[in-house]
Design a protein around this nucleic acid. Structure first.
Length: 306
DNA sequence: AGCTACTCCTGGTAGC
DNA sequence: TGCTACCAGGAGTAGC
């Protein structure tokens, strides 16, 4: 491949993009951020720069599924952003008949760009809208997916309950943990058990509940399971309140500010620094192939079966 | 059931 | 300054 042609007058902004790792609060924040700019707009065209973003669909399939359709809903399930489209000017124009299933994975971003705005270097896919704006999917590491489908169930994997909905109860967690011998951290990362948690919020929740990440799930005492239940909900609610965690100013909230939950981290990314609760130096180990941050004093492995 | 290993990817960084 | 090597990590899959 030849070197891309660049001019001094028309080079796109090469914003630095450090890791973001969107989990439930970040995905919720993104959905809320782009929703007002998308609802009611009609897709006039598509452009795909990285085919694998479509998760197996072709550029032609994307085009035929979305062109001429109106964006009717922007929601979230687990870490997926679900954009619902309907056929305009028909009796069923308020019924979603097509979905865009978006997973940001590590570094994906969804941006609504004003007409004529420069295209970011790592834009993998674009929907053109009837007001001249664009919905850009930007993803430096190319792990993210933007999948068009008629049937959600064809694309979404098996997902556990939403941790902030009423379906997620203390009893659900007590029961779920009691029959599993795998490590608690691996279980909480398992989206088919509980949907939406990722590495950051699992580490934070386990610290809040004072549970060692390598504890076998069935060995967590009932009292700590209850603490974990409260910790998960509180952690996610607080993070949504603060509009997620941002590691850069590229991603902004509707008010133009980056999310601020990263300032609340108790353990994530703080290995080598003192625990805010007891002063012991925080450690980093690998559990379930993930960097895992914890306090060796506050979070101890249980000695015997409970 | 539950573990490890591998894959997909590139930006950032450490070491030279 | 420039090069190479390595690492991070969500989710899917394969193999034991």
């Amino acid at each position: 491949m030849g070197k891309p042609c660049q001019t001094l007058t028309n080079s796109p902004p090469q914003t630095r993009l450090p890791p973001l790792m969107p989990e439930l609060p970040e995905v919720e924040t993104v959905a809320r951020l782009i929703r007002p700019d998308l609802l009611g707009r009609t897709v006039t065209g598509t452009r795909v720069q990285w085919l694998r973003t479509l998760g197996g669909a072709s550029g032609a399939q994307l085009r035929s599924l979305v062109r001429g359709r109106t964006l009717l809903s922007v929601g979230r399930r687990a870490k997926y952003i679900l954009i619902g489209l309907s056929e305009p000017n028909s009796l069923a124009s308020d019924v979603v008949d097509t979905w865009l299933v978006v997973h940001l994975r590590m570094t994906g971003r969804l941006h609504v760009e004003a007409p004529g705005a420069p295209v970011h270097k790592h834009t993998r896919l674009t929907l053109k809208l009837d007001n001249g704006a664009r919905l850009d999917f930007i993803d430096p590491r190319k792990f993210g997916r933007f999948i068009p489908t008629r049937h959600l169930e064809d694309v979404l994997p098996e997902l556990g309950p939403e941790p902030l909905e009423s379906e997620f109860t203390e009893d659900f967690l007590l029961e779920g943990l009691s029959c599993r011998r795998g490590r608690i951290k691996a279980l909480l990362l398992d989206q088919s058990f509980l949907a939406g948690l990722g590495n950051i919020y699992v580490d934070e929740s386990l610290f809040t509940a004072r549970i060692h990440p390598q504890t076998a799930a069935c060995m967590v005492p009932r009292k700590k399971v209850r603490a974990l239940y409260r910790a998960i909900r509180k952690t996610l609610e607080d993070a949504i309140e603060r509009e997620g965690s941002s590691f850069d100013t590229f991603y902004r909230t509707p008010e133009g500010q980056p999310g601020s939950y990263q300032n609340q981290f108790q353990v994530y990314g703080r290995h080598g620094k003192p625990c805010r609760a007891c002063g012991r130096i925080l450690r980093r180990i690998v559990v379930a192939q993930r960097g895992t941050h914890f306090c060796p004093s506050c979070q101890r492995l249980p000695r015997k079966r409970t």
